[in-house]
């Protein structure tokens, strides 16, 4: 298997505050890779640095073997990288359907119309609310909308920033179940940032652990999950 996304010595800073100190990670083609870590470790910043958004980043980012660091966010998105940001990034004044239409904004192919039904297939609840203002959706529904909006791009790589954040466990389980289905059916690779380590490790096949801006350990998810220190610090047993 080859890597669809690779970072080499990725550093990032907000103004004078340095957050990432050289991240090397790889996301396997077709796989799910998860990036774990505590609050403030730099998980969200890593995703932002990959997309060159809201943060000053240096270092190499390779997507399908080609350098993308330094490109504008809009252009990175157009290559097929969909980013579901923290806070879900809902266009709250627009309807659900308009949110999805914006997700497909860069696409000019004829498949867009069919793709609405495809994402509604994953999230039937959104179909019921298609004319509703997105800001009035519940947190779980907004997360589903955010993932759906990303899928409308027909991405090759999906970056997910804490999809479990602030949601009831039963909703989280549903979303993770659907993420697995999406990964398998859409041939989309996933980089998942999570604090909920046990859920993430169960879903992913690769995992990295981030502490204060540095990767401390990485490898197959099963191996990471059985690592003594990881278990104590992040899994709680």
């Amino acid at each position: 298997m080859s890597a669809i996304l690779e970072t080499r010595g990725l550093r990032a800073a907000y103004g004078p505050t340095k957050v990432l100190h050289g991240i090397d990670l790889a996301v396997e083609q077709g796989g799910i890779t998860t990036l774990l870590g505590a609050n403030g470790a730099g998980k969200t910043t890593t995703l932002r640095a990959i997309c060159n958004m809201m943060v000053r980043a240096t270092g190499e980012v390779l997507f399908a073997g080609a350098r993308i660091d330094g490109k504008a966010t809009e252009d990175i998105v157009r290559l097929g990288i969909a980013h579901v940001p923290d806070g879900r990034g809902t266009f709250s004044m627009l309807t659900v359907e308009e949110n999805l239409r914006l997700g497909a904004y860069t696409r000019r192919d004829r498949g867009v119309a069919a793709d609405y039904d495809r994402v509604y297939g994953y999230f039937p609840r959104l179909a019921e609310r298609r004319k509703q203002q997105a800001g009035t959706l519940s947190g779980g529904e907004q997360q589903m909308l955010a993932i759906s909006r990303a899928l409308m791009l027909r991405p090759k790589l999906l970056l997910l920033d804490e999809p479990s954040f602030g949601l009831a466990p039963i909703i989280v389980q549903e979303i993770f179940r659907i993420l697995r289905a999406i990964n398998q059916q859409e041939q989309v690779s996933v980089l998942l940032v999570e604090q909920n380590a046990s859920m993430a490790l169960a879903l992913a096949d690769h995992a990295y652990l981030l502490e204060t801006g540095e990767i401390v350990i990485g490898g197959p998810a099963a191996v990471i999950g059985s690592d003594e220190s990881v278990r104590r610090a992040y899994l709680g047993y």
Binding site: T73, H83, F91, R149
Partner: peptide
């Protein structure tokens, strides 16, 4: 939402 807008290209 300028940030989300960038993220959809």
């Amino acid at each position: 939402n300028p940030v989300s807008s960038r993220l959809v290209g």
